[in-house]
Simulated assay, not measured.
Amino acid sequence: MTARPTPGWLKPALELGPVALFFAGYLWLRDDTFLIGGREYDGFIVVTALFIPLILASTAALWWLTGKLSQMQIVTAVLVTVFGGLSVWLNDERFFKMKPTLIYLLFAAVFFFGLWRGRSYLQLVLSEAMPLTHAGWLLLTKRMAWFFVGLAVANEVIWRTMSTDAWVNFKTFGLPIAMFAFFIAQAGLMKTHATAPEGED
């Protein structure tokens, strides 16, 4: 599929928009209870049910506009559908709260497997954006794998020991901030292991 010219803001909006709408919807409905089909659902479950088609529509729009999807986008859409669907079906918010844990552990496992084979699967995704030496990619991949393990542990601790409000804030703001901070912290590695773009000395 051929990618179509799109405004620069559209792709980030499609990626971050569903999360922002989930947060806004939760703030709006968190104190409400809904009777649907003779069964009571709290606001969190209703917002989760609305989030599933929203993330699928966003992912489909990204594919239609860009002609490709990253593995992270595909895995996220699948796990949102499966675990969000389980939360709605069983009327149990715990399944949806486990989703980030599984996403991060899955990618950590993939990265560790690649390192075991002497390869950086992170390089396959980011090589165009960050030209690094092979040693640099291996080191960055190792750090990111452990970072994902840390995020998985943090998600488990927060959803199991804190309120739903705290977990929603962590998911909406904490995870993106942690990811941003991680890459900022890798500035030294990127400088040390940077390579010139192809065709340049």
Rank of each mutant, 00 (worst) to 15 (best):
Y41G: 00
Y41P: 00
D42E: 11
G43N: 11
F44M: 11
I45Q: 00
I45E: 00
V46N: 08
V46D: 07
V46M: 11
V47I: 15
V47T: 14
T48F: 02
T48L: 02
A49N: 07
A49M: 10
L50W: 05
F51K: 08
F51P: 05
F51H: 10
F51Y: 15
I52F: 01
I52Q: 00
I55S: 03
I55A: 04
I55F: 08
S58L: 08
S58A: 15
A60P: 07
A60Q: 08
A61M: 12
A61N: 06
L62Y: 10
L62G: 10
W63V: 14
L65N: 09
K68M: 13
L69V: 11
S70A: 15
Q71R: 14
M72G: 09
M72T: 13
Q73D: 15
I74A: 15
I74F: 15
V75W: 05
T76N: 13
T76D: 13
T76Q: 14
T76W: 14
A77M: 08
V78M: 11
L79E: 02
L79Q: 06
L79H: 03
L79Y: 00
V80E: 06
T81N: 11
T81G: 08
V82W: 03
F83P: 02
F83Y: 15
G84H: 03
G85S: 11
G85L: 01
G85Y: 00
G85T: 00
G85V: 00
S87A: 10
V88M: 04
W89A: 06
W89C: 01
L90T: 08
N91E: 09
D92W: 09
D92L: 11
E93W: 01
E93H: 07
E93K: 06
F95V: 08
F95G: 02
F95I: 04
F95Q: 02
F95K: 04
M98Y: 08
K99M: 13
P100T: 08
T101I: 14
L102G: 13
L102S: 12
Y104C: 04
L106H: 06
L106K: 02
L106C: 07
F107Q: 02
F107R: 03
A108I: 01
A109N: 11
A109Y: 12
V110S: 08
V110I: 14
F111A: 06
F111H: 06
F112Y: 11
F112E: 07
F113L: 13
F113D: 13
G114L: 03
L115N: 04
W116K: 03
W116I: 07
R117C: 04
G118V: 01
R119N: 09
S120T: 03
Y121R: 09
